[in-house]
Amino acid sequence: MKIAFYGSSLLSSYWNGAATYYRGILHALAREGHAITFYEPDAFDRQQHRDIDPPDWARSVVYPATEEGLRAVLAEAGEADIVVKANGVGVFDRELLEGVIANARSDALRVYWDVDAAATLDEMEADAGHPVRHALSDLDLVLTYGGGPPVVEAYRAFGARACVPIYNAVDPATHFPADPDQAFACDLAFLGNRLPDREARVEEFFLKPASVMSDRDFLIGGSGWETKAMPGNVRHLGHVATGDHNAFNSTPLAVLNVARDSMARVGYSPATRVFEAAGAGACLITDAWKGVEQFLEPDREVLVARDGSDVAEILESLTPERARAIGAAACERVRREHSYALRGKQVDRVLREAHATAREMA
């Protein structure tokens, strides 16, 4: 089927943490026989920080972030069997959602793909006029980045006809163990952009242990941290391109995952970096969130910390031998159970079933 996907960016991970998720899922869908067009605005300097060239498995359309550019790409929605509006495009989000619904064929499947479902649901609860809340009656399906039963139940309560979590995963062709790189050598590394609903948790789980472990080396990558006061044993790298992620994850003694506030509260929301770090054989330390054992086994495939003191305690006792064993076990688990190939087959099945239902109702 022809899929028109309106999202933040397929080509750039700059201020766009969903990039590798989109690439993994959509590449897998292309292998299932779908013809995909990805529409992304030329905004936020993302095109100046591309990680990849336009892939051969999807048609890439970069449009001017103007009303004229918006109208041009929305006009193509009527050519697709499935139209998808992802959240967090950053420009014209309301207009894109309304336009996708208005321009889709009557027999097309209309999908909202929420890569920040917990936060979206909080906004919908606080705002009766929220565009997603208003659009649910015209949408056939909601797919989410994660969130498990709590997110499914909340979306159904708001009126979604169907809601299915599609979790992050790993593509072994792009994320795999790499040779160590001294540029990323440290005891604990964290990769993530500076965001208001993440910063306090980064302070607790990363900067707090750094401040009490002055004899250890810490490394932080991601945009926005350059103005943040940090202990002297923390190095800041700035934006880390996806081509460097394997070395970033393979080199340190351990790699930290810190969930955003809403995702930690809801649970069942493993970030992309969980699977990418595991796929690179990293010894992953994650903040505690409900459902972690659904993806990785604590103490064998991942180390779980309740707070910064736990992180410091884990690092203090972590040997290189144990770190390698945990990383190897995690790598084997995600390749076996959490690959994008498996996610692609799941999404293909969900879309085909929902599309058949939509055609019957048209």
Results as ranks from 00 to 15, higher is better:
150 P>L: 02
110 R>V: 07
152 V>C: 04
100 V>K: 01
127 D>L: 13
135 A>W: 04
141 L>V: 05
103 N>L: 02
94 R>S: 14
88 G>Y: 04
132 V>T: 12
95 E>Q: 07
107 D>C: 08
124 M>V: 00
92 F>Q: 07
88 G>W: 04
142 V>K: 07
149 P>W: 05
85 K>V: 15
133 R>M: 13
95 E>T: 02
93 D>M: 10
146 G>Y: 11
100 V>D: 09
131 P>H: 14
97 L>E: 01
112 Y>H: 12
125 E>F: 13
143 L>F: 08
114 D>F: 06
90 G>A: 05
98 E>G: 10
108 A>V: 03
147 G>H: 06
143 L>N: 10
109 L>P: 04
122 D>E: 15
117 A>C: 01
155 Y>Q: 06
142 V>S: 11
90 G>W: 03
126 A>P: 01
142 V>T: 06
103 N>T: 07
121 L>C: 05
145 Y>A: 13
148 G>V: 00
101 I>Y: 08
120 T>W: 10
121 L>A: 04
96 L>E: 07
106 S>G: 14
89 V>C: 11
94 R>H: 00
104 A>Q: 08
137 S>W: 14
149 P>I: 03
152 V>A: 05
150 P>Y: 05
97 L>D: 03
124 M>S: 07
103 N>A: 14
119 A>Y: 10
106 S>D: 14
98 E>V: 10
90 G>P: 02
129 G>E: 15
85 K>W: 12
121 L>P: 03
109 L>M: 08
139 L>S: 12
144 T>W: 00
149 P>H: 03
89 V>F: 06
108 A>Y: 01
96 L>R: 04
108 A>W: 07
95 E>P: 02
133 R>D: 10
101 I>E: 12
109 L>V: 06
118 A>N: 02
85 K>Q: 15
143 L>T: 09
93 D>K: 06
123 E>I: 02
102 A>I: 01
131 P>V: 04
145 Y>S: 13
127 D>E: 14
136 L>S: 06
157 A>K: 14
131 P>G: 13
87 N>E: 13
93 D>E: 13
127 D>W: 01
154 A>P: 03
120 T>F: 10
123 E>K: 12
116 D>G: 07
108 A>P: 00
133 R>Q: 13
128 A>L: 02
110 R>P: 03
132 V>W: 10
111 V>N: 09
103 N>Y: 12
116 D>N: 11
137 S>H: 15
132 V>E: 00
125 E>H: 15
155 Y>F: 10
134 H>A: 14
114 D>R: 08
